[in-house]
């Protein structure tokens, strides 16, 4: 039987991640889709540590570590440098967390997207600064506890809509992906590889210590993030929006939030409010799906 995703592994088990880390699943599947002719550019993020201390490396592709705010700019430069040396084949991937994407790295990200740099930018989003010990980022959802949003109310502001921001840049390809849906995810990375121009993939990566759940539930929570409609799987190619999942039978968002310690202080009223927001967003997805 032919496996539905490549069997070859470009990520070794010797990485330094926490048990149950969603970001390692994300990297593993991404590299299966991208293949070995890839350079990964890493700003400060969990993966800075996960990739391994010098001289060891958990990745079978070259890795360039760069400053926090600079992932998209440095990746653009790597592409330009490779082209200058006559290498037009190698894929350059900026691999950043939510802090490095939503907050400190958004200037470089916006610039590279606007210029149409021929790179793939991946945000593996665990919804807070997890590498430094769970501090709030622009991606932290409202109601979620972090070390810098303590107390019952947790974070007050809703999560920034990075996908809408990227869509406004009119880029060649963008997609969302969840590690629970491995085939969908590998397919999207393999597809991104064939497209020229700026590409953006947003991966929601569950984080056991940051979201406060038992590490064996990573895949289950990833699946729930999609099934509740909180994190929709879709693609936008040449401006055309396409949902990759059935919109009709969504589970209540509470099935996702109640399994996580970070939402312990969430009131029923706040839960309703989140549900209403998700429903409204889905009305929009439905309309867009019908339009295209």
């Amino acid at each position: 039987m032919k496996p539905s995703i490549p069997a070859a592994e470009l990520m070794t088990p010797g990485h330094q991640a926490c048990q149950g880390c969603g970001a390692t699943l994300a990297m593993r599947y991404a590299l299966k889709g991208l293949g070995a002719q890839t350079v990964v550019v890493l700003p400060a993020c969990c993966w800075t540590v996960l990739a391994g201390q010098s001289p060891r490396s958990a990745l079978g592709v070259p890795v360039l570590h760069v400053p926090f705010a600079s992932a998209a700019a440095a990746a653009s430069g790597v592409k330009a440098g490779l082209l200058a040396r006559g290498d037009a084949q190698t894929q350059v991937v900026a691999w950043a967390g939510d802090g490095g994407t939503y907050d400190i790295g958004i200037q470089a990200l916006s610039g590279a997207a606007e210029r149409g740099e021929d790179i793939l930018y991946v945000c593996y989003d665990n919804e807070a600064y997890m590498n430094t010990g769970i501090q709030r980022s622009g991606s932290t959802p409202d109601g979620a506890w972090t070390m810098t949003t303590p107390g019952k109310a947790g974070n007050l502001r809703p999560k920034k809509d990075i996908d809408a921001i990227m869509e406004a840049h009119h880029i060649a390809y963008q997609a969302t992906a969840a590690p629970a849906y491995a085939e969908d995810m590998v397919r999207k990375f393999a597809k991104a590889r064939t497209i020229k121009g700026f590409r953006f993939i947003h991966v929601l990566a569950p984080c056991p210590p940051g979201w406060k759940y038992d590490s064996e539930r990573t895949v289950a929570l990833s699946r729930l993030s999609v099934q509740t409609g909180l994190f929709a799987l879709y693609e936008i190619e040449d401006g055309k929006f396409r949902l990759n999942m059935n919109a009709s039978a969504r589970k209540p968002v509470a099935e996702f939030t109640r399994g996580q310690g970070r939402y312990k202080g969430l009131t029923p009223e706040h839960e309703d409010e989140i549900q209403k927001r998700v429903d409204a967003r889905w009305a929009d997805y439905d309309a867009r799906s019908r339009a295209t």
Partner: peptide, 17 residues
């Protein structure tokens, strides 16, 4: 490029290549 910080970051990438 969109800033000096990014200019030098791009050169970090290009020179590393």
């Amino acid at each position: 490029i969109e800033s000096e910080h990014s200019a030098m970051a791009a050169l970090l990438g290009a020179a590393s290549a």
